[in-house]
């Protein structure tokens, strides 16, 4: 009887014990659960942002008034303040705030730079997922190549963010002051993109470690490239968060 049922139990349903109900290793499950938890951290920040945002009147649609954009920082801000596009009373329209592009000073290019950042992140996600796929095939060389591209993408994104922050700060935005509108706009921008940037940074660090291990053949010896998958999950999560940051900070 005993041997009989032990044989039956082990092959029975998903949840009856003796096996992973999800067919995943515990490490991957842990990563998923951690990401769920981290999603709540980001949610709290974004929801906080939402509450503050809702406590200010919506931006005024003044786009047509801004004709040829002479974007030499302070004059522009003054002009915007003058026509009432920026005031402490209402939330500024994000396309008037983030409308610069490196090497193209003085041209009104709303949304362009941040779209570039988004694409960088999406591409690095793709290379990541390609690395994972290569891992499934136990293709050490390809894993290395794709991981390298992913790291490159991450660094590029961080660089872009640094540039954007620098631009924003040189125009006078700080945690407690914001020439474009309510101080909260700047503070929350720094908080949320900063927290996201911190995640990207840790992701890059993890990627570098995974890259070196892969190069050294650690995973090949181990017999599987699951580590790449786990790091990948984290990396995609960072991308996922960016989708919402992009939507809520730049589009809406």
């Amino acid at each position: 009887m005993s041997t009989d049922s032990s044989a039956t139990v082990s092959t029975t349903r998903t949840w009856s014990g003796g096996r992973s109900p999800f067919d995943v290793s515990y490490g991957k499950l842990m990563m998923w659960i951690f990401l769920l938890s981290d999603a709540f951290t980001f949610s709290s920040l974004l929801v906080g942002y939402g509450a503050v945002r809702f406590s200010y009147p919506a931006p005024e649609p003044l786009v047509e008034k801004i004709a040829p954009m002479s974007h030499v920082s302070h004059e522009f801000v003054d002009e915007m303040q003058h026509i009432g596009a920026f005031s402490e009373k209402h939330w500024p329209s994000p396309d008037l705030v983030f409308n610069h592009f490196p090497f193209l000073h003085g041209i009104h290019l709303p949304l362009m730079f941040v779209s570039l950042m988004t694409f960088i992140l999406i591409f690095s996600s793709v290379t990541m997922v390609l690395a994972v796929e290569a891992g499934h095939r136990m293709d050490k060389k390809k894993v290395g190549v794709y991981m390298f591209y992913t790291i490159l993408g991450g660094l590029a994104f961080l660089g872009c963010q640094a540039w954007e922050w620098t631009q924003f700060i040189t125009e006078g935005a700080t945690l407690s002051h914001n020439p474009f509108g309510p101080a909260h706009f700047a503070a929350l921008f720094f908080m949320v993109t900063g927290f996201h940037g911190f995640h990207v940074f840790s992701g890059v660090v993890l990627n570098v470690i995974a890259y070196i291990s892969a190069k050294n053949g650690v995973y090949e010896k181990r017999g599987h490239y699951e580590m790449i998958e786990k790091v990948g999950l984290y990396w995609h999560f960072v991308d996922l968060v960016w989708v919402f940051v992009f939507t809520f900070f730049y589009l809406i």
């Binding site: 067919d23 793709v126 939507t247």
Partner: peptide, 26 residues
């Protein structure tokens, strides 16, 4: 925009994060 964001999120989670190929319980 929010709907588009959610759709993007769906593709990232389902495809990139492999969720579509995991067991539905997970």
């Amino acid at each position: 925009f929010i709907l588009l964001g959610i759709i993007k999120a769906y593709y990232i989670v389902a495809s990139f994060m492999h969720m579509k190929h995991e067991k539905v319980d997970l």
